[in-house]
């Protein structure tokens, strides 16, 4: 029995745009992954805690509110605090290019903006979980 890839898809902060998060979650499910979706309005601590309890391979954050520069470092901080700082974090949504670079420096693994093909997202997740 091969190991299943487990992914947490979360929406931090007060952002109500959940279409992208759901589209990505469904695509990952259809690619054979087990996707845990925690719904809207999660605090960075909630997300880290869920990732810890679920022992996921990847954490995916969907942020369209513009608050990514505030939220991402908080999520990374809590992940360290919970002892899971090594898990890769993907971010998607409305992220300007300069911010994307900054986020990657901070420790975010990948950033995907609008129009990214779902195949590309699936492939990059498969690549890191081997």
């Amino acid at each position: 029995m091969g190991k299943k890839i487990k992914v947490l898809i979360a929406k931090p902060g007060l952002d109500g745009h959940d279409r992208g998060a759901k589209v990505v979650a469904m695509a990952l499910r259809d690619a054979g992954m087990e996707v845990i979706y925690t719904g809207l309005r999660q605090s960075p601590e909630d997300i880290a805690k869920a990732a810890l309890q679920e022992d996921v391979d990847v954490i995916g954050l969907s942020i369209l509110s513009g608050a990514h520069m505030k939220l991402c470092p908080r999520v990374l901080e809590f992940m360290k605090q919970y002892g899971i700082g090594e898990k890769p974090v993907f971010v998607g949504g409305i992220i300007p290019e300069d911010d994307a670079l900054e986020l990657k420096k901070m420790g975010i693994f990948e950033v995907f903006g609008p129009g990214t093909s779902l195949e590309k997202i699936i492939d990059s997740m498969r690549k890191i979980v081997k």
Partner: peptide
């Protein structure tokens, strides 16, 4: 449930477990 075709799954019960997730 897991999908019988792809083996993938959408696990959404946590959406309604916000009270205890903290």
């Amino acid at each position: 449930p897991s999908s019988p075709f792809t083996g993938g799954a959408f696990l959404g019960d946590r959406i309604r477990m916000k009270r205890t997730s903290r």
